[in-house]
């Protein structure tokens, strides 16, 4: 890989929720900043910028990733999914969003995009989890409002709805 200049700006292109997007980033620009401020996809939030809170979680090539721990230039050519792409095509809530809605699983909603991205990856891997498994899957997402109880309930409800929908 060629060495990048600190002050330089480099073109970055990837697919965001299935649509191609592009912009310019300095080598040290975080993916979270690039999404929010270059692309204008502000649904992904930041809460700590040191990899602990999970607020910035997005999916990169199907894997849940902390976008504050990744540089924008590293996302070149990737498939990135964010909260903006989660609803159904007609704009209605996905099963996971609907379960959050019905369970009062969000308050300020600041942590929610990260929580939803983590859970969507997790439920993809584990469609029939126990409550304890959900809690462990959430251990990298801090929520200061809800107390997690409703989030866990919502994840259980969503898993069930997805299973039943797929059956």
């Amino acid at each position: 890989m060629t060495k990048m200049e600190r002050a330089g700006r480099y073109p970055v292109e990837f697919n965001l929720n299935g649509e191609p997007v592009d912009g310019f980033a300095s080598p040290r620009m975080l993916l979270s900043d690039f999404l929010r401020h270059e692309i204008g996809a502000t649904g992904t939030h930041v809460g700590c910028e040191h990899g602990v809170c999970g607020v910035c979680t997005v999916k990169v090539d199907g894997k849940a990733v902390r976008s504050c721990l990744m540089f924008a230039v590293q996302a070149e050519g990737a498939e990135i999914e964010t909260i903006e792409g989660m609803a159904e095509a007609d704009g209605s809530f996905s099963a996971l969003q609907e379960a959050f809605h019905q369970n009062f699983a969000l308050q300020c909603g600041y942590c929610t995009p990260g929580v939803l991205m983590s859970l969507s990856e997790f439920l993809g891997r584990n469609p029939d989890p126990t409550e304890d498994e959900v809690k462990v899957a959430l251990s990298g997402n801090i929520c200061r409002c809800t107390g997690y109880h409703e989030i866990v309930q919502a994840a259980m409800d969503a898993a069930k709805a997805i299973r039943e929908g797929a059956a």
Partner: peptide, 13 residues
């Protein structure tokens, strides 16, 4: 259910 959720759950807060 909360009207606030409509935007927040879609990342449009």
């Amino acid at each position: 259910t909360r009207v606030e959720n409509i935007t927040l759950l879609k990342g449009k807060g």
